[in-house]
Structures are given as C-alpha cells and as structure tokens.
Write a protein that binds this DNA or RNA. Structure first.
Lengths: 131, 131
DNA sequence: CTAATTGTACTATGCTAACTATTACAAATA
DNA sequence: TATTTGTAATAGTTAGCATAGTACAATTAG
C-alpha cells in the first residue's frame, strides 16, 4: 500500500487518498479483506494530520469501499454499489459528456479520444477476484 | 444563450457558466463571433453577482474560448488550444482513467461503459463551422 | 462630442471546505 | 491489563466562492 500526495495538486489530500485506494482496488492490487494502513501509521508516513486520513476512511466506509473496526483496522470490502444501475449509468454519462466537450475544445478528434478511452478501460479491465 | 444555474449542485456557479458555454460551442449552438450576454445582463437574469459572471468570462478569455472587448462585449473565439497535443492527450487520459476506476466500483462492465462513451462522443461530434 | 454601455479592477465582507492540532473515548487485540 | 485502532469533538488557520459597492477605460450609440 504505497500512497503519494501531490501537494501541487488542487485536489484535496483526503480525496487523493480515496482516489488511490479505489484505483488499487480496480487494478486488483488490493482485494477483499486486505488490510489498509492504520490511520496513525499513514498519517505519520505522509506527514499529514490523522484527521485527514480518518476523513478519507470514513468516506470510503460510507461508500461501501472498505469496512472499519475500531481496534482492528480498515479492510477492503466486497464490491457492492448501493446506487441503482440507472443512477450509476447517469453519473458516468454526465462525466463522459463533460469529457467529450473538453476533447472538442482541445481539438482531439473522436478517433484519438476513442484510443485514449480504450487504453484507460483496458488498464482497469480486471475481473473481481474472490477473497 | 440560455444558461441555468443549479443551486443544489456543489459545482461553483462560475464553473457552471463555463461548462454551459463550452458545451454550447461544442454542440455548434454557438459559433465564432457570436455575442455572449453582457456581464450585467446575465447577472440580472440569473440573479447573481456580476463579479461571478465576470470571473467566468475572464477565465474563458484566458483559455482562449472567448474574446472580450470593454465597451463591445464578449464573443466566441476561434477554436485554438494553447496547450501542446501531448499535454492535451495526457489531461484527457488522466480523467478517462479516473472514470474507468469509478466504473469498476460502480460495477459497470466495459461494454456498457463503451456504450455510454459512444453516446457522449456522438453528441458532440460536430465539425467546427467556419464563421 | 456626449452619454450610455461594457468588461475590468479593486476593496471589503461573509461563508464554507479543507487541513491542522489536541484530547478523549470505545472496541479490538496482544 | 495495556496497547492499538477507528471515531468524535473542539478550536484555529487558510483558501476558494460569492456578494456588495465603487470606479475606470474602451467601445458604442445618439
């Protein structure tokens, strides 16, 4: 579990932590029941306030990404979205449309955009392993 | 030029304005030299502070999306990104990868994601018209 | 030329999110 | 029993967003 914080990024630190945990899970580097670093451990390693780590863990717990138990630690949970499929597709569509607009203004043609999309999709095309 | 502000959104107002102008341009509803509403006009219509509109216009001018002239107004500019092609592709790749991760956690399979992508891409597949 | 319009600049204020610092507590572990 | 762990709560700082008001220079309309 290697996490890096980019202080020059305008993305909040707690969000960067969430991003990277979710990414590692999507990549298959983290699987169900894997233990995450403790709040204090990660706070010391990254030299940031424990509250910031706790905030990230709390939010991931809320999203069902991890399960936490005081005294034990934080662990990767089962893959199980609480949102309806319709809502999930709507959320993704909205972001994809915004990307299409950006691509237009960046003068990236559709074929090139499709290539970039395929590259990204392949990278995370990992079937969920069973713990 | 019809702009709508969603007050329940956590997206900043000035950003929502930028989103919609860029979207209208990408859709071909706004073309080069088209005049945008004046700062005060749009502020009155949306019942928000003129400074917020000015901020949106200033940023779009900085991105080369529009051209402004005091006394005249704000106009749609030529399509011309100041960033190198490599940088533009990198920017898009990063966002696309984040979406791929989200899709994984939302349990949206690759084929479904591809469909959503194609829908979004088609919508903005408009060849730039010449003014 | 004059007056109105337009984008911009500036200062000040209120609000919220993000982060830090510190202390304390309950559950799990050794 | 003592330590470790996630959580909660309070307080303070910083930055971004939005509002309010005033003023200025360039453009436009008369």
């Amino acid at each position: 579990m290697q996490i890096r914080i980019d202080n020059s990024s305008n993305r909040p630190v707690y969000q960067q932590i969430i991003d990277q945990v979710k990414r590692d899970i999507a990549l298959g580097r983290l699987i169900k029941d894997d233990k995450l670093p403790t709040v204090r451990e990660l706070a010391a390693q990254l030299a940031i306030n424990p509250n910031t780590i706790a905030k990230a863990y709390r939010q991931m717990e809320g999203e069902g990404i991890i399960v936490t138990r005081p005294g034990a630690g934080a662990f990767v949970a089962n893959l199980d979205s609480s949102l309806s499929r319709v809502v999930r597709k709507k959320l993704l569509s909205d972001v994809l449309e915004r990307i299409a607009v950006e691509a237009y203004h960046m003068q990236i043609d559709r074929q090139t955009l499709l290539e970039l999309f395929n590259n990204a999709a392949e990278k995370f095309n990992v079937p969920p392993r069973k713990g």
